[in-house]
Amino acid sequence: MLETFLFFLFAVVAVVGALGMLIARNPVSSALCMIMTLFAIACLYVTLDAAFIGVIQVLIYAGAIMVLFLFVIMLLNLESVPRLEQLDWRKVAAFVLGIAVLAELLAVISLRLDVLPEAVASSEAAEAASATNIGIALLTEHAFSLEMIGVLLLAATIGAVMLAKKRFV
């Protein structure tokens, strides 16, 4: 029962944060709403017994990436957008399409999940997703991918430096 309550609590927080990000006129507000969503999602991870991923989520997203966003927003000193943007047919179409996709996704979730295998007990799942097991899997089975992620991050760092240098573009 507690679990259900926590899920809905964090789910509501996440959706409200996401909507806030979507409709805030000031980019800084958007970013802050986004941080709220990310926290909520981290909490959901914890309720799923995936504590490791939850912690990582807070560290990387809320701690690193969002700070980077805020930093850039401040750096560019962006102003808020004017209140009423013109409502053209493209915006209406986008909205309708988005709702249609959502409806379809929900239909898929409610109608087509019967093909999935049997679920396991939550204690067993928590055991499988413990930090130890994730670490073993990462450094044995997925060691090569891990190295490649390192290379990718290095390349991204160099690329970011190059792009942000003056008179580059």
Binding site: A93, L97, G98, A100, V101, E104
Partner: peptide
Amino acid sequence: LAFVLGVAVVL
């Protein structure tokens, strides 16, 4: 937008 339209159609 066209991309999303495609997603909707595929779904």
